[in-house]
Design a protein around this nucleic acid. Sequence first.
DNA 1: CACTTGACCTGTCCGC
DNA 2: TGCGGACAGGTCAAGT
Length: 295
Amino acid sequence: MPELPEVETVRRGLQELLVGRRISSIDCNWSKSFAAAGNQSLIGAAFREIRRRGKLLMLELDNEHTLLIHLKMTGQLVFVADNGLRFGAGHPSDSLVDQLPDASTRVIFFLDDARLFFNDQRKFGRIQLVANQEVPADSFLQRLGPEPLGPDFSKAGFGKALQRRSGTSIKAALLDQSVVAGIGNIYADEALWKARIHPDRRAGSLSPAELGRLFKAIPEVLQLSIDHGGSSDRNYVNAEGKRGAYLDFAAVFRRQGQSCPRCQSIIVKTRVAGRGTHLCPNCQRLFGSTVGLKR
DNA sequence: CACTTGACCTGTCCGC
DNA sequence: TGCGGACAGGTCAAGT
């Protein structure tokens, strides 16, 4: 489930590996993954710049078009050099590059001296070809809220966006990409734990102190994850086919039954906003004070 | 309009 | 061992 840190990790890898390389042909075995796979204007086009907005990758080509790629739940973009040359750190056996293509491969971009695999077990991911001048009008991009690691993410604007979603849970509000771009299930749980806010609190009910803690926690957990190469729960790998290590540092996600790193209470898993939700029942309370209750 | 639910998909796991 | 069903969770469309 690639979220902002995972997509950003892929972006950095592709920026190093892809820019300047040219598409020689494209294979696609699931047309819904890439409806424009047969477009002849792609042949001979080179990658110019790799950008990201929220969870959306934007691969700008030198033919006045951009590939918009959303990995959704199980999408992967993996670069494999034809000569077997390894890129980046880590042992080659950590990577799945030797096993590609596999049953989840939907699209292969053949480059002059390499291949780029788009793998997607559950087929939810999408590759779109969009003219550069149409990119700003893309409906998904239009609805995105601010980048949480960028200068446009302000406490005042965040508070206003939460008021707009005041009747729903704070967890649902964090998952709403129009409030903040790029947060998914993992980082919603981690940020709420760090800010000591129960996921089922109403989004409009936060005190100024709670709003301040959450506003600070969001970029902190995202940046920490980027520093560890993102989270690999099941499918996620970076552009070199390698897994991320952030879940080794996560406080609550997939840690039900273990001890809260802050108060040693047992972490529980519940359901909020239709999603599996992990929290510390002592640090994150719906009612009442935690004073004197820590152990 | 605000909010919730189901659809899109496949692989894995659990109970019988 | 096999089988049905629940579950995983990002986004959009449809429903309340």
